[in-house]
């Protein structure tokens, strides 16, 4: 499943933009833009999404290249973690009050 909004009919394809706002942080999706190719896409992203020093690094990805989980199977796809509380530290209450745990 590709990203919604991508259309082969458009003269310039759609690119999704991810910006790292500071060192030590992940790239975060900020939006999309149009560009004829990756060289101009990354420049357009710099011009559009970092006008106010919002970023130290930019990623662009062709919208058509993104695969997403199928939302119609949403229930089934994300059901498994529910109930597996032992994956969370807060599950282990007996150690409460013990330091450095």
């Amino acid at each position: 499943m590709t990203t919604p909004g991508d259309s082969a009919a458009e003269i310039w394809p759609l690119w999704e933009v991810f910006v790292r706002s500071n060192r030590g942080l992940s790239h975060v999706h900020v939006g999309s833009l149009h560009a004829p190719d990756e060289t101009l896409a990354v420049r357009n992203a710099r011009d559009l999404y970092t006008r106010r020093s919002e970023g130290v690094s930019v990623w662009v990805v062709p919208a058509a290249a993104i695969t997403t989980s199928d939302p119609d199977a949403k229930g089934a796809f994300f059901e498994s973690p529910a109930g597996k509380n032992y994956r969370h530290a807060s599950y282990y209450s007996k150690s409460e009050g013990v330091k450095h745990l």
């Binding site: 458009e10 003269i11 939006g31 559009l48």
Partner: peptide
């Protein structure tokens, strides 16, 4: 820029910029 952010949001609903 704001026009572009918004076109980008509309595009997620299947509308193309063109």
């Amino acid at each position: 820029g704001h026009g572009l952010y918004l076109y980008s949001a509309a595009q997620t609903l299947g509308a193309t910029r063109d």
